[in-house]
């Protein structure tokens, strides 16, 4: 799994690490049952704090993409494929809304209409 960060970016590092995992999930590089690399190894490789990686893993757990198990570490859940794709599409939708000047309320209304 490729994890990339840009220290000069406005986005927090943990969010960038989480985005890399989401991308790997939506590309099919990670599937149900796969283990994510140990946080310490990722942190050492990227020269960042291990708590940054743990925070990213915590975020992914809250999104339901991974489970954090005591002995096996971070493991991809069964719902990860669809949720990761949904997350990616939602991100693209938000970017497009910003580009064309649609605010959050307006976008929410559009999504609600489509959902109904």
């Amino acid at each position: 799994m490729l994890i990339r960060i840009d220290p000069a970016s406005q986005a927090p590092l943990f969010e960038q690490v989480a985005a890399s995992v989401r991308r790997a999930l939506s590309d099919g590089e990670l599937a149900k049952g796969h283990q994510l690399p140990p946080a310490r190894e990722v942190a050492t490789s990227l020269d960042i704090n291990v708590h940054t990686v743990l925070r990213a893993y915590g975020l992914l757990r809250d999104e339901g993409l991974i489970e954090l198990r005591r002995r096996r570490g971070a493991v991809v859940t069964g719902a990860a494929d669809t949720r990761a794709r949904l997350n990616t599409l939602a991100g693209e939708l938000a970017d497009e809304a910003r580009r064309v000047g649609v605010d959050l309320d307006e976008l929410t209304e559009i999504v609600k209409e489509k959902f109904a």
Partner: peptide, 14 residues
């Protein structure tokens, strides 16, 4: 190529 930009850091573990 992985498309790594100048200033970016990356790791591939697999």
């Amino acid at each position: 190529s992985a498309g790594l930009q100048p200033g970016e850091r990356a790791t591939w573990i697999g």
